[in-house]
Write a protein that binds this DNA or RNA. Structure first.
Length: 668
DNA sequence: GATTAGGGTTGG
């Protein structure tokens, strides 16, 4: 029954602050069933979200204690819950909701058109105003309109490190280790961008169960999934031919083989359903009438029509319009029990050759794809040290093409000053950036037949080329900024500015410790913030204020002062401290007319970029330093129109937020 | 009255 407003002000969950007591509404995203603590209470852990949370991973965790379980809000995922007088505290860097004496709660069902009344409440006396009803209605409709928990991904979309849900058909099964590891050989009718580890099922003791007819249909699309531990039992129930959904499958980067012998080689992924059930990890056998099963069946029938089991599949004919490059080095070879069609044409198209070694019974495959989605990366932690914000700012004189770009000097100067501040918000909100964007858009419009950045048919001369990834479509920066992280993209853009300018080798190169990631400019004479560790290490310094390790090739090398200090503290002084590496470390402001981003370029990626001229080359040859200088001027001339560049960009997260890094790109 | 516990991937 509606009552008058009780005067509560409900705070959006993203506006909450620590050490406050608030009234809130939220939708239950997660709930750990209540359990008896070792203290006197029951504990319920619950996570809430609402419309104010744009990031799908955002939530308010609530830790709720009560002497009596019935006093806890025993909701279900999806339910709407209202708290009055919930305490918000900081815990481990996050906000946490806690019940205190006086806290009350009310639970509503999530069903649209359902009763506006509560289904549970902490007290018999509660008030639901018209405003509350309207709020519940809005939340119900909002939640129904968005599929929050869907992490569904097809195989063509996977990238190393991704956790995703896979809807697929099981073609074969094989127990690898009883009770521990089960192999499911599956297909979803798509082909990954990455080579996928293949499990050897030819070895003794492997009994593969398969449907030969289905297997023939799926050849070229088959991928191996390993199901471990907790999920072995559920996996064992699966019969070949069944449609399943694997929740929280991990496209783990497979590291035990040297698949990246070249900079441009792609990482191999292995598809693994790890032990445990966190993040909803599980296997579900799909109801054949379910929407997921219907959709999958339709797609599989499109790409590889069902045929009677003794008729070779249509896919054996090459040149089919739907033909995908096939590679039956893959699962086929391993399926001793399956009759293999002979003569299915196998080839790897212009895709990347990953130089796969076949070791430990493992091969990897790489198939063609037309998909624009590329990949993400996992091991880019090194990059956390890319931060040139302490460096001197770029010089306005480098932006003297202001007139050409219809940008005033002042505006260019603002950009330069902000170039190494990562404050995207401040820049995005800056009206002064607009003319720059506009000028670039105009620039592209005046470029002969180039009507659009997406017009890949246009023969556009770029100042850089990318190495590899021929089948990857370009992504606009606007989209990159909105995309999940980490990920990799191919971009066509212009370099608006970069830093540092190669005024001297000293200001251009950095010293980097591969062990502890200590980093300092070559020109530095003091460590930042007068670190005492460094001050003490100066005693042995010569030339630069860093301890000299050795001199070879006519180049001074320095031991890492951080590691020297740490080893002396840990009485580990017998260990030779690592030698600092000379590295490039640059940052580019690139803009493609849709938006801009700051892209880091360093270490091997930078050597590739500068056509294999290494940092130490610059120390030894003035000509090579000049060559690098000229290359940069080519990519971002101080005067005149900036050329287009094409580059690979990977995004990754650091404590400072999302960063971007250039890789597999070289100046022409 | 304080305490309890503080969600949670990455081996294969």
């Amino acid at each position: 029954m509606s009552k008058t407003s009780a005067g509560h002000v409900y705070i959006p969950l993203s506006d909450l602050r620590g050490n406050t007591v608030v009234d809130i509404y939220g939708i239950v995203r997660f709930l750990k069933k209540p359990y008896k603590t070792r203290g006197s209470d029951y504990c319920l852990v619950i996570s809430l979200f609402d419309q104010s949370m744009s990031d799908p991973d955002q939530k308010l965790k609530c830790l709720l204690f009560a002497k009596d379980m019935s006093r806890l809000p025993l909701a279900e995922v999806g339910d709407i819950i209202r708290f009055h007088r919930l305490s918000i505290v900081n815990y481990a860097g996050e906000l946490q909701g806690q019940m205190k004496p006086g806290t009350s709660w009310v639970i509503f069902s999530p069903s649209i058109g359902g009763s506006p009344d509560a289904i549970k409440a902490s007290s018999i006396n509660y008030t639901i105003t018209d405003e509350d009803k309207s709020r519940v209605k809005n939340l119900r409709e909002w939640a129904a309109s968005r599929n929050f928990h869907d992490k569904k991904c097809s195989l063509k979309e996977i990238c190393p490190g991704l956790y995703f849900d896979l809807v697929c058909q099981v073609v074969s099964t094989c127990v690898i280790e009883d009770g521990v590891c089960l192999l499911l050989r599956v297909w979803d009718g798509t082909v990954p961008n990455y080579p996928v580890r293949v499990i050897d099922t030819e070895k003794e003791g492997c009994r593969v169960h398969s449907l030969p007819g289905l297997h023939r249909r799926a050849v070229g699309y088959l991928y191996d999934v390993c199901i471990f531990d907790d999920h072995f039992e559920a996996g064992s129930q699966i019969k070949p031919g069944q449609h399943v959904k694997l929740y929280n499958l991990h496209a783990a980067e497979y590291r035990n083989l040297e698949s990246r012998s070249e900079l441009s080689a792609l990482p191999v992924v292995e598809l693994t359903l790890h032990q445990g059930t966190s993040f909803g990890r599980r296997i579900a056998i799909l109801d054949e009438q379910s929407e997921d099963a219907h959709k999958l069946r339709r797609h599989l029938a499109d790409i590889s029509p069902e045929v009677s089991s003794d008729t070779p599949g249509k896919l054996s004919s090459t040149g089919s319009p739907n033909m995908v490059s096939r590679d039956n080095r893959t699962a086929d070879a391993g399926l001793a029990n399956d009759a293999q069609p002979q003569g299915n044409q196998v080839h790897v198209s212009s895709a990347v050759d990953i130089n796969q070694p076949s070791t430990s019974g493992i091969t990897a495959k790489r198939l063609r794809t037309n998909d624009s989605k590329v990949c993400n990366v996992k091991n880019v932690n090194d990059s956390k040290n890319i931060d040139t914000r302490n460096d001197s700012h770029s010089d306005n004189s480098d932006s003297s093409n202001a007139n050409d770009e219809q940008v005033s000097k002042k505006k260019q100067s603002d950009i330069s000053e902000e170039l190494f501040s990562d404050s995207r918000e401040s820049r995005r909100n800056s009206d002064e950036l607009q003319p720059v964007k506009e000028s670039i858009v105009n620039g592209s419009k005046t470029e002969g037949s180039a009507q659009s950045l997406d017009d890949t048919r246009c023969m556009r001369q770029t100042a850089t080329v990318i190495l590899n990834h021929p089948n990857t479509k370009r992504t606009k920066i606007e989209r990159i900024l909105q995309h999940m992280v980490p990920y990799k993209f191919r971009v066509l853009a212009r370099v608006v500015d970069y830093h540092p300018k190669p005024k001297s080798v000293q200001n251009f190169l950095q010293l980097y410790c591969p062990d502890c990631h200590f980093l300092c400019p070559l020109s530095c004479h003091k460590l930042p913030d007068s670190e005492s560790t460094f001050e003490r290490s100066l005693e042995t310094g010569r030339g630069l204020d860093l301890p000299v390790g050795s001199t070879f090739g006519g180049i001074q090398h320095y031991n890492c002062p951080e590691c020297v200090e740490n080893s002396s503290q840990n009485s580990d002084s017998l260990k030779t401290p690592p030698i600092l590496q000379y590295i490039y470390m640059l940052r580019f402001l690139i803009d493609d007319g849709t938006d801009w981003l700051l892209a880091n370029l360093w270490k091997n990626d930078a050597v590739t970029f500068f056509r294999d001229i290494s940092p130490t080359d610059l120390l030894q040859s003035k000509n090579l330093f000049q060559e690098v200088e000229e290359m940069l001027a080519q990519v971002c001339p101080a005067e005149g129109e900036k050329p287009w560049i094409e580059c690979c960009i990977m995004s990754y997260r650091t404590a400072q937020g999302t960063q971007y890094q250039i890789f597999d790109t070289a100046i022409v």
